[in-house]
Design a protein around this nucleic acid. Structure first.
Lengths: 233, 233
DNA sequence: GAGCATTGTTGCTATTATAGCTACGCATCT
DNA sequence: AGATGCGTAGCTATAATAGCAACAATGCTC
């Protein structure tokens, strides 16, 4: 819902911040302008402003990457989100299944991982490890996309897959059909707009029990955020 | 360094975002205006813009708190920062000392914790658990404040303490002198602008060995960010 | 419940913060 | 060396924004 007088500079500035944060090795001013469809001088001004705040910094090659204040933002966002803290105990229990265990959110048709643990990995190593991944090729992504109202903007094949996801109540993604590498995704109930997934080699008969595990974990995570208003802390 | 044409809306909008993120139970428009010294209508407009982006949401009592897009920001900032991922293996090793183990950064004379583990706590439980804490009463805060160029803005007693911190090379804070509850803080070398700390009941003769532990951990964390430019990933 | 104080927010409009254009020095590639 | 693309400063027109006033909603006290 657009407010009476939205602040366009803030919106574009946040888009620039979110883009630079996703490029730890740096991104150029003009490249970002092309990506975001904005005028280069404007991008440069927003980047310079972020650099002044310490949220971006320039590399030797004049590209921009996250600056030291990004750690502040990470700390603040982690605290303000509270999701990771609530979710990790439940995700840890899924480690015994010897699959990838992941928690993610949607950003511009891409999945952004809060947690991504490969088999055998410690929970603490699963943090901030993986960047963006195309949503339509991920269990998390498909589960979350299926929750959206309007599916018309997707190609026919994706739309069909999203309808199946809705009917099943979970996402099942096979990047390479027939290979049995699969990703199962389930949305966390409540207004969190996040999802969890198990990925790896998954035989047919194993799908339903794993979905049950996911649902249990998702319910546990969602139960700690059941109140849409003041949360206990 | 202020750019040629800074974007004030972005700066103020980010201040509003950082404030709302730190209030999980909500903060009112006019209260925030008073806190930030800005005009209420302006705050309302910035908040409404953030709400449109999902980064804020209004409570039943009309206050603003973090919205669902905060999880996206947390995921992105965690990935863009990379600090937690690098630091946690080193921090885990400090758990055996049976003290509070913490990693934090400075924000407006307050410490913002990325990691704060009480004795006996699992590393995964230490995330996003604690909000802001006054910097001058924290080992992390004092260690980071001592790194700043200009100490003139602090009261005489704090300034003297900061000079001692500089001379020692680590921070030693005693919230209640004589009680032996202490907080030891050490800055992570390199441009990270973060620090780690051990806190709890610490006897005199135990201080130096603990500082050595902290320095070792800080050096380990900093070594993984030794290049001020393109980082391996 | 009534009265009062505080709050969140809208519309209007003046103003100034911002955006775009141009040009220039710098970096990279052939 | 030349060509191309880059990051960015200065200038200036303009439209995005800020502040004021007013109003509906909420909270507090008696």
């Amino acid at each position: 819902m657009l407010p009476a007088q939205p602040n366009q500079s803030l919106m574009d500035g946040l888009a620039v911040l979110q883009t630079v944060v996703g490029h730890p090795d740096g991104i150029g001013t003009r490249q970002m302008a092309r990506d975001l469809g904005l005028e280069p001088t404007r991008i440069n001004r927003l980047l310079k402003t972020l650099a002044h705040l310490g949220l971006a910094q320039q590399t030797a090659r004049r590209k921009y990457r996250p600056g030291p204040a990004i750690h502040v933002l990470a700390a603040q966002a982690l605290f303000g989100s509270g999701l990771l803290q609530r979710a990790v105990p439940h995700l840890e229990k899924l480690h015994r299944l010897d699959l990838i265990v992941a928690l993610g959110v949607l950003w511009r048709d891409q999945v952004c991982y809060l947690y991504h643990a490969a088999p055998g990995m410690k929970p603490s190593q699963a943090l901030g490890r993986v960047g963006l991944f195309p949503a339509t090729r991920s269990g998390i992504g498909m589960a979350l996309l299926a929750e959206q109202k309007d599916l018309h903007r997707f190609p026919v094949a994706v739309r069909s897959e999203l309808r199946q996801t809705r009917a099943r109540g979970y996402a099942l993604v096979e990047p390479q059909p027939g290979r049995r590498e699969r990703s199962l995704g389930v949305v966390i109930p409540g207004g969190t707009q996040a999802a969890i997934a198990l990925s790896g080699v998954i035989a047919d008969q194993r799908v339903e029990p794993l979905v049950a595990e996911l649902r249990q974990a998702a319910a546990g995570i969602g139960a700690e955020e059941s109140s849409p208003y003041p949360r206990s802390r």
